[in-house]
């Protein structure tokens, strides 16, 4: 049995990101290629941050998920180029982040990468745009801590990169 790449992508769409389980590895935009090489199913994955501790777990989760679907030979390959950008998070991924309480990253990341002061986030709880950054890093390297000036709740913002 050699399921076509679109079917495989559909399966991977159910593999959660280990650190933000509300979104899948496909939503995150890190699955860069799915294809067969002879009898081996090859999945190209691009790392988010170079030192993201979830990278190894993601490769293992993808392998496990595909084995569970009956595919014996799976190879997860790392693809470095072009480098991952938060612009690749799917519209559905952005919606899921918001529902989970994380403000999605500002689009056109190239214009504001490394400049948190150039990025703004709407409060995922009340929708207010009257928010402020309180720390450039949060519970994971990819997030900053923000606070809503209206409902006063703190929230995580997925930094544009």
């Amino acid at each position: 049995m050699r399921p076509d790449p679109d079917t495989v992508r559909g399966w991977l769409g159910k593999v959660p990101d280990p650190e933000i389980p509300a979104i899948s590895v496909v939503d995150l935009g890190i699955v860069r290629g799915v294809g067969w090489e002879d009898e081996t199913l090859v999945v190209d994955v691009t790392p988010t941050y170079a030192g993201c501790p979830a990278t190894l777990v993601i490769a293992l989760d993808i392998e496990t998920a595909l084995r569970d679907r009956g595919i014996d030979k799976v190879e997860v390959r790392r693809r470095m180029s072009p480098p991952w950008s938060t612009d690749w998070i799917s519209p559905e991924g952005r919606r899921k982040l918001l529902d989970y309480g994380i403000a999605p990253p500002q689009l056109n990341a190239a214009n504001c990468v490394g400049m948190l002061s150039a990025q703004s986030a709407a409060c995922p709880l009340c929708g207010s745009k009257n928010t402020e950054a309180i720390a450039a890093r949060g519970s994971t390297p990819c997030k900053a801590q923000f606070r809503c000036r209206d409902c006063r709740e703190p929230f995580g913002y997925f930094k544009a990169i």
Binding site: A50, M80, V113, G114, I161
Partner: peptide, 20 residues
């Protein structure tokens, strides 16, 4: 090629480092 790809990835992280 590998150095170029490494740099294109790392430079985005490094921009956040110096920002802080």
């Amino acid at each position: 090629q590998a150095i170029r790809e490494l740099a294109q990835k790392s430079v985005k992280e490094v921009r956040y480092h110096i920002d802080r």
